[in-house]
Every structure is written in C-alpha cells, then in structure tokens.
Simulated scan of single mutants.
Amino acid sequence: MVGGPDLSASSDASIYLVDGSERAVLIDAGTGTAFDKVRQLIKKTNVSPAKISHLILTHCHVDHSAGIPQFRKWFGLRIIAHQRCADILEKGNDRRTGAAWYGIQLPAMNIDETFQGDDYRISVGDTELVCIYTPGHSPGSISVFLDRDGVRILFGQDIHGPILTELDSNEKLWQASLKRLLSLEADILCEGHYGIFQPRSEVTRFIESFL
C-alpha cells in the first residue's frame, strides 16, 4: 500500500503497488492532493519508477481517479479501466464521479486501455493480474486478483459500497458482485478504505458482512 487515508491524504482511497519483477503496476490513483507523499512511499519500496507501466483504475469515483493526471506526468504509464468507467471519466461527470462532494474539479480524462465484458488479463512481468467486472457500487467497477506462491490476493476496492442513487449504484448488481468475489476464495483482501484482511476466513467474514 503506497497511499490511502492513513498514509497520504484523508481524501485518498487506498493505492496499491504490485511488483512483477520486470514490470510493476499501480491500482488506483487517489485524489492527487498528496501526490508527493505517494511518490515518496513508492520510492521507499525500492521499485524503480521506470518499471511502473500501468495503472489499473477500479472505478471512476474521484477518491480513486483524480490523481491520474499526476501519475501520467511523472511515470508515463498507461491507464486501464472498464469501458463503462471510461465513458464516465471521458465526460467529466461531477455527479457520477462524486467530485462535487470533495470540492474537486475533475477534468475530462481519456483512458488508454479499456475492456468490456467480465474478465481482462494483464501480464506484469512474471505476474498475471485478472481484472473482473464487479458492478454495483458504480456502473464500471472492477476488482483485481493475482495468485502468487499459492496465495490468492484480491484487490476489491469499495466492497463496502456505499450504494447511492446519485452515484448510479445498483444494489442487485452489487450483491451479485460480492457473491462472485466470495467464490474466488481469496487469502488476502486489499480493500479501498478498510485496509488489508487475512487469512481467508477474515476475507470471507468481511465480504459476507455486506450481503
């Protein structure tokens, strides 16, 4: 974890860095309000900035996405998101991104690499990341998982919701997405606001608490 409410800024969702030996990838971008702190935390991991090739955006909300322009500027990386997330960001929609709540003006943003459907696989050095479509909290929400040394790690940002009509949330889809995440039987959960859960029994308990 290289960013989040207890590490960079209270307005930031958690930002995760996955090191895949030859390459590395970030998951989510925070609000950008404490970008210098995030850069310093990345530096402390000893992962070379030149290795960071992509940033996977789990959904369009401003606490996950507003830092994208700064990450692009400093790391020259490509942004990956679900097409439904990209559609919202490319219109700069302040309501559906929640930007108005944070007092942040979110400019229209282009996403470099998008996918449709349920699954999208990304090779990051020696690691394969699987992006799965998990709508509900937002129309374009995704989750990401990887398997390493027999351990399944799930990046399930905003599993807790909230489910709000002004964000175009959908409770039925959210519940279905939670059930899909349970079926992955992850050993470690990296969540967007509540931190990291392990072992598998704790991951299951946390997800089930919202069903």
Rank of each mutant, 00 (worst) to 15 (best):
F145G: 02
S138E: 15
F155E: 03
F155S: 10
S141H: 15
R148Y: 06
S141Q: 14
G156E: 10
S143K: 08
F155V: 03
Y133R: 01
P139K: 10
R148D: 02
Q157S: 12
E128I: 15
R148C: 01
V130N: 04
G117D: 14
D147Y: 01
G125A: 01
S138V: 02
G125Q: 13
C131Q: 02
I142W: 11
L129H: 11
C131P: 12
G125S: 10
R152P: 09
V144A: 02
G150R: 06
R152C: 05
R152E: 06
I132Y: 12
G125F: 07
D147S: 10
D126S: 07
I122S: 04
E128W: 07
D149R: 06
S141F: 09
L154D: 09
L129Q: 12
Y120H: 15
G150V: 03
G156R: 12
T127R: 02
P139E: 15
L154Y: 06
D118M: 09
R148A: 13
S141W: 04
V130M: 11
S143N: 08
H137V: 00
D119R: 09
R121Y: 10
V124Y: 03
C131L: 15
P139C: 03
D149S: 14
G117W: 05
V151T: 12
I159E: 03
V151L: 14
V124K: 03
S141L: 00
T127N: 01
Y120T: 12
S138Q: 07
D119E: 13
I159F: 09
I142R: 08
D119A: 05
F145S: 03
D126Y: 01
V130K: 00
G156C: 08
C131F: 00
G150W: 05
L129N: 10
L129T: 06
F145W: 14
G140R: 00
T134R: 11
V130E: 04
G156F: 04
T134D: 11
H160I: 05
S143G: 08
V124E: 03
T134I: 03
D147C: 13
G156D: 07
I122A: 04
D149E: 14
L146H: 08
T127L: 10
D158Q: 13
I122D: 00
P135M: 14
G150P: 05
I159N: 10
V124H: 01
S141P: 00
D147G: 01
Y133D: 01
S141E: 06
Y120K: 02
D149K: 13
D118S: 12
R121P: 00
T127A: 10
Q157C: 01
G150D: 05
F145T: 03
D158K: 13
I132M: 13
R121K: 15
G136C: 13
V144M: 11
